[in-house]
Write a protein that binds this DNA or RNA. Structure first.
Ligand SMILES: [Mn+2]
Ligand SMILES: [Mn+2]
Ligand SMILES: [Zn+2]
Ligand SMILES: [Zn+2]
Lengths: 144, 144
DNA sequence: CTGTACCTGATAATCGTTATCATGAAGATG
DNA sequence: CATCTTCATGATAACGATTATCAGGTACAG
């Protein structure tokens, strides 16, 4: 009576895991750079850091790769108050951030009650395909 | 024993109420345009609308005025996903929005429990001067 | 190995926003 | 009302982040 499950072993093609993108030195470098820090960084900052550390990579490639990683859910993207896109490696799963205006330090927060509340409010107003953006800003203890 | 209170009657100078800015035709026009709609609009959109309706006004002035109105709390400012600043007249008091990705329709929401929760989370993490950004996105009934 | 579809990156183009600064207008003062 | 000072305006240039181009390089399926 057991349901025939497809093999749990993922057919690991040589393209990058589940994204269908090719593995290149450049994408590995961006991934490594993002994994090295837990702060928010702009594409320009990531590019400069890689160049400084000897990795040759184009600015356009950094932009593209960060956009793709964000779409794949591997990193978070927020907009700084002046409109720049900033990326940060994130723990798996949906969550939000508490960010210091002074030094940029960020704490991940994940309020289950908030998620439920957001869905309810939206549904009550006849909205579907609900998504949300939530960030808290302040000054951390060190910056006060 | 009564404390000498300063006169409650506000010394109404001829500069704009409480902002210290001068009253000009241009600022009135931007204010009127924002009051006319309850949707989000970018500076460029406001400028085009005013020009189309016969009001002569410079783009730089629209940018300046919207920034000032947002600082004064007369309008809300959000960042669209592509980084543009969008402004919307808002009812007085702090609140957030539920915005349709399809048509831009927006519903104001003001969850008191959320405000309290945000402050508590931040305080627990040693943060001060707390502010937050919260927007819900979805598709309204008409756009589904 | 080979072919091809995809990736890269120097560069140019785009575009929202801000800075300049000469000119005009608000409004305080008498 | 006349005058003066200070601030506002706006055409324009500058800025800066992001995106588009496209020729050349590379991953990788077969
Ligand atoms: Mn995160
Ligand atoms: Mn509002
Ligand atoms: Zn800090
Ligand atoms: Zn809609």
């Amino acid at each position: 009576m057991g349901i025939d499950m497809p093999p749990t072993e993922i057919t690991m093609t040589s393209t990058d895991t589940n994204t269908g993108l090719r593995r290149t030195r450049q994408r590995a470098a961006v991934g490594a750079a993002m994994g090295r820090s837990s702060e928010f960084h702009t594409a320009q900052e990531v590019h400069a850091a890689l160049r400084d550390s000897g990795d040759s990579i184009g600015l356009a490639t950094v932009y593209r790769t960060l956009t793709q990683m964000a779409e794949a859910g591997e990193i978070d993207c927020i907009r700084t108050p002046d409109g720049q896109a900033a990326y940060r490696r994130c723990s798996s799963g949906h969550h939000h951030h508490l960010i210091c205006r002074g030094c940029g330090r960020a704490v991940e927060i994940s309020p289950p009650s908030f998620e439920a509340w957001a869905n309810q409010i939206a549904t009550e107003n006849g909205f579907t395909q609900i998504d949300h953006e939530l960030e808290l800003f302040g000054r951390c203890a060190a910056c006060s």
